[in-house]
């Protein structure tokens, strides 16, 4: 299975939305890593990995997400995952991966979060 990555940038809110579709495995991880690295280097406050259409993830894929999380964390920025399918969730659970990573169960939660962020910016 292949992996399709779509990146949408919301410059106003400094949010990058990376949508994954397909399988993130040993074969597809290297290309995804390059793609994600480009996004992370963009320096957006929040990078959301939208896993709505992600059917499969292996440790190689998790490694890439791990690495990106580490980088954004050290820069004081955030990496979040949204719309994880149950079996993807299970892999994350097994590996107790990223316990402190923001996780949005669905698009509503994500939108709420983004709204609140916007609100905070306006308040400042």
């Amino acid at each position: 299975m292949d992996l399709t990555t779509t990146v949408a940038i919301d410059e106003e809110n400094s949010v990058a939305r990376v949508a994954l579709a397909g399988a993130l495995n040993t074969d597809t991880a290297p290309a995804f890593e390059l793609r994600l690295q480009d996004v992370v280097k963009g320096g957006y406050q929040l990078t959301v990995l939208d896993m709505k259409d992600l059917d499969y993830i292996s440790s190689a894929g998790l490694r890439v997400i791990f690495k990106a999380a580490k980088q954004t964390r050290s820069d004081g920025r955030k990496l979040a995952a949204a719309n994880r399918k149950p079996h993807i969730d299970k892999v994350f659970d097994i590996l107790k991966a990223l316990p402190d990573m923001a996780v949005f169960a669905n698009d509503e939660e994500l939108d709420d979060y983004l709204d609140s962020m916007q609100q905070r910016v306006r308040d400042d």
Binding site: S59, R63, K67, V91, L95, P99, D100
Partner: peptide, 20 residues
């Protein structure tokens, strides 16, 4: 497993998956 992101190692996850 379960380490804080700052101290977590990148990689070495595969065997956990196999066993689990």
């Amino acid at each position: 497993l379960g380490a804080d992101i700052d101290s977590a190692e990148i990689g070495g996850l595969g065997v956990h998956l196999i066993i689990q």
